[in-house]
Simulated scan of single mutants.
Amino acid sequence: MICVSTVAYSQDSGQTYAEKLGYPKGKKVLIIHVDDVGMSYESNEGAIRAIREGVANSLSVMMPCGWVPGFVNYWKENKDLDAGLHLTLTSEWKDYRWGPLAGKQQVKGLTDPEGALWRSVAEVVKNASPDEVEQEIRAQLDRARTMGFEPTHLDSHMGTLFATPEFMERYLKVGMQEKIPVMFPGGHNTAIKEVEKMISDQFEMTQKIGKQLWNAGLPVLDDLENSSYCWKGPENGDKSDKAMQQYKTGKYIEAFGKLKPGLTMVIMHCTIHTEVFPKISDSWPTREGDFLAMIDPELKKYIEKEGIVLTTWREAMQRRQKVK
C-alpha cells in the first residue's frame, strides 16, 4: 500500500466542477470514500458500517479478491449503496494474494512467478503492457456485471493506473466508453497538489483531461484528499480504540478544514477488528482508526456545523446527465 497518490493533477480557475453540477456555490462537497471492499470480511464490514453508522457515503470493490461475493450479496439487497470498482492490478500482501481475472495466459505481464498480480506498482510498470492493463480492467468490469453488480464509478488500487500515461489513457478510455465516472481530479486540486508538489506541465495536462471527461458526459472531481493512510496514530504510540478514534477524527477535521470549495473525494480504508486481519496486513491500526473516525459523533457534528455537503458518485453522475 502507498501513502500518497502517484497521480499528477491540474488546477483550474473559475467555476468549480461542483458548481457546474449544480451543487451550492462556495460549498465543500465531499464523497467520503472507503477503498478495498471485497478484500476481506473485515473490509466489507468496516465499509458497510462506516456508511450505515457513520458519515462515509461511498466505496469501491476489489473484484479479484476472495470476499467480493460476500459484499455483492449484501449489495443486492441494499442497492442504495454507492459502490464502484477499485480496479486492482497489484497483490501486495505476503500471505494473502489474488490473481488477474483475465487469466494468467491472457495477461502474462500482469502475473508474477507465484501466479498472482505483482506486489508493487513498479513491477506492473516494468512488466505489463497497456493492452494487458485494459484487458484486466475490462475483465474486472465484466465479472462485476456477470454478478449483477453495476458500478457507480471506477478508481485505482494503489494508484497503479496513474503510474504511466499509457495506463491512465486506458483507464480513462474504459470509463468514457462505458459511461462510468472515473476518479480523476481536474479542478483546483488544492489538497493533492500540496502532496504531489506538481509542476505547471502537470497542471496543464490534468486540466485538459478534466475537460475531456466532462465533455464525455462524466462528472469531474475538483480535488482529492488522500492522506489518511499515512496517519498512523498518536505520537505516544497509543493504539487503543479511544486514542485512535480521537487521533483520526482530529486528522479528518483538520483535513476537511483545509479543503477549498468544490467536489472532493476523500479516500480511506475501514476495517473492523478481528484476530484475522492483522495476519493479512500490519496496516490494521490505521484502517481500524479510519472506521472509528467515520462513526465518531464528533466528526458528524463538525460536518454539520461547517455546512459541508455530502454526495455520492451516483448523484454526481445523475447531476451530470442533466447538464447540457
Rank of each mutant, 00 (worst) to 15 (best):
G217R: 08
S240I: 02
M198N: 14
K108N: 05
D296E: 05
A128M: 02
L81P: 01
K305H: 09
E77Q: 15
S129A: 04
Y9Q: 12
P130T: 05
Q245A: 12
K179I: 03
M268P: 06
I199V: 13
G38T: 09
L172W: 01
S10T: 14
C230S: 13
H188V: 06
E196A: 15
T146F: 13
H273T: 15
A8Y: 13
G54D: 05
G257D: 02
F149C: 00
E134H: 03
G103T: 05
K300Q: 14
G233A: 04
S200G: 11
L117K: 00
L292E: 01
Q245C: 11
H86I: 01
W98N: 03
K79W: 00
Q212P: 05
T146K: 15
Y252L: 11
N78V: 10
P24L: 04
K232R: 11
Q207S: 14
H157F: 01
S283D: 13
L161T: 02
M244G: 08
G84F: 02
I48C: 08
Y247T: 04
L85N: 05
M168P: 05
E166R: 08
F203P: 12
L141Y: 01
T271Q: 04
N189R: 10
V34Q: 04
R52K: 15
E123L: 10
S129P: 09
H153R: 11
D238Y: 01
W214R: 08
D95Y: 10
H153P: 12
V55A: 07
S200I: 14
L224I: 04
M265Q: 14
Y74Q: 09
Q207V: 12
Y247R: 07
D142I: 01
G187W: 00
A116E: 12
P100K: 07
K279N: 15
Q177S: 13
F203N: 14
A144Y: 01
P185W: 07
G26R: 10
V37I: 11
Q207G: 15
A243K: 06
E178F: 04
G262E: 02
R138S: 01
K232H: 10
L218E: 07
S40F: 04
R97T: 11
A122V: 06
R119V: 06
D223P: 11
T274P: 13
K322E: 10
A122F: 03
D223S: 06
